[in-house]
Design a protein around this nucleic acid. Structure first.
Lengths: 343, 343
DNA sequence: TTGAAAGCGGTACCAT
DNA sequence: ATGGTACCGCTTTCAA
């Protein structure tokens, strides 16, 4: 017995295939009795509407693309994915994931082949910059393009981004406000890919330059180390190589701050007794560590982006001025910051 | 100008739609010259083969389902997903994710509605137990069912699982071998869902009972605390409430071990000076923490499961005895274990 | 090597 | 409320 199709169900139920179809997709157009019988028989026959057929007929694909810079396994990317999924899945969409749109080669391959062309109903771009020619190529697929944490909204139909620059500015201001005068910003080197990270560095610098101009006694510096699995150790050794250990450390992200706290403890440096440290993200273990940090909520961003996408797919207008959204990071005060005390 | 379809391309290239189709899917059947021209024009017209149409015609869906107990955001689930994705995506498959198949209600809903019926080419079940009636329902969709970390292979066409019981047995043996005689196993309460977790507890108990029988001087206990975001704090307070602080702590997972180390440090308990501790998973920050742990590689399991699925989808047989695989966890020695010394 | 045409499994318009 | 039917966009014989 091969799989039953719509005709088998129609026959078994003594109705036409139109009625079977309607019983599934427009139940209100079918009499109660008929609908119940049809659905019952369909269930018995293991029948279900084919998404491929529906997609073909409707001209939609019921699929969206998600472009990511690196891997989905990073905290940020996973959360974004979970947020998108929580809205798109119930709406009947699959998410087709394209990771590692990061190296020049991968990018070129993706943007010239454009494998998603005519095969997705929307495209999400998560946390990387695409340059103008790439935007142009993307637009050729003629579907909404929604950005998540993107540096420029040019070419995007909608977006939601965190204000990294302002967030890190406020984090730095917080440390300065506590009286710290020797502040270090350990970070992995800027890439032209990860705009979020770069913006954070600018926020740190702006806060420090402002404070310096106002008071003049601020000793601050950026400790830039190569990217890679060893970046924390690199930052750590750079930190320990300084003439004087800083009062305060402003971290590019929690993933820098958390191991750093653990390792500094092994060198006898304890927070907040010996130094204040602040993270960025409020990601895994931040709460357990008691890490003071700037919280962002990538899952909520994913949800918001998904809702915008659904509206655009359905041809609805986004409320004026609501297409592009910026959200602020929130300072979460915990146990790794304290007022400066001469030691 | 509306989107070009296969006819537009055919016309522009002066060939039939058959030739356009073949130029994409069976390039070898089309003359070089023709193929080049067709593909060129297709590109110019932003044309691409429709996956929906291909799927419909071929009877395949180019989609697989992934069933998860909780959320994709857990370390294990993310890694499994990444592993599956790395194989399935290049093979042309989307992964349709079904999270939270955990509560009785969600399960019932999923298994009776069976929304994936006739709409996926394979089903992956990640780290939860499905009971016999549920297996029966799943089988009604008549596609391969592949398990990842499942307690029983009954009803599955293929599977790959880690041997949690043996892994935790060896972890415990390691601590006993170091001379520790007072060992505690903090864990969150067993559920009938998460079989991995339960098996680990059994491994701990088996090791302890064995050692007790052999030598008799072992003081061991399981510290079971309610699940939830506070489970580490619950375990910690239970631990500190013991009459005597243990020599060694055997953790159900790294997510228990890592915060515990950090928090114990604040109570003056340092590892490995005051106690040994071992984790399970080798997940995030384990390396940076220097945590001695049992490593598992869920990403590799995802890849393996995906490869099995592709073979089954293509009607190939799996090598005899290779359908169901069990892998061992690996002991990773780092800095949180040391021989027992009277203190 | 290429073209014509019959479906794949539905949807939705038009009748009744 | 229900049925008949053209068609969605491609794949694949079968012929030429």
């Amino acid at each position: 017995m091969t799989k039953a199709d719509i005709h088998d169900v129609a026959k078994a139920a003594g109705v036409s295939i139109s009625t079977v179809s309607r019983a599934f997709t427009r139940p209100d157009l079918v009499s109660d009795k008929t609908r119940r019988r049809v659905l019952d028989i369909a269930d018995r026959l293991d029948f279900n509407i084919s998404r491929s057929a529906t997609a073909l007929k409707s001209g939609r694909t019921n699929r969206v693309a998600l472009l990511m810079n690196e891997e989905i396994t990073s905290w940020f990317n996973t959360e974004v994915f979970a947020g998108l999924e929580s809205v798109m899945h119930p709406a009947g969409y699959d998410i087709s994931l394209f990771q590692h749109i990061d190296t020049a080669e991968n990018r070129r391959e993706f943007f010239t082949d454009l494998p998603i062309r005519r095969n997705v109903d929307a495209v999400f771009v998560a946390s990387f910059a695409i340059d103008p020619p790439e935007v142009e190529q993307l637009k050729r697929i003629h579907v909404p393009i929604i950005g998540i944490n993107i540096p420029s909204t040019t070419g995007f139909d909608a977006s939601i981004s965190i204000d990294d620059e302002e967030g890190m500015y406020r984090a730095t201001q917080h440390l300065i406000g506590l009286g710290h005068r020797h502040i270090v910003y350990p970070c992995s080197e800027a890439t032209d890919m990860d705009a979020s990270i770069d913006a954070r560095g600018r926020g740190f610098i702006r806060a420090c330059e402002g404070a310096s101009a106002r008071r003049g006694d601020l000793d601050w510096r950026v400790l830039s180390v190569p990217r890679g699995p060893e970046f924390v150790d690199s930052a750590l050794s750079a930190l320990l190589a300084l003439d004087e250990f800083p009062d305060a450390i402003c971290c590019q992200m929690d993933m820098m701050a958390i191991p750093m706290i653990i390792k500094l403890e092994r060198y006898g440096r304890r927070t907040p007794r010996d130094y204040s440290i602040i993270g960025f993200d409020d990601s895994i273990y931040a709460r357990e560590m008691g890490l003071t940090t700037m919280r962002q909520d990538p899952r909520a961003m994913g949800r918001s982006a998904a809702r915008k996408a659904l509206r655009l797919i359905n041809g609805e207008e986004l409320d004026a001025g609501k297409a592009h959204e910026t959200v602020e990071a929130q300072l979460v005060l915990r146990d790794t910051d304290a007022p400066y005390t001469a030691s």
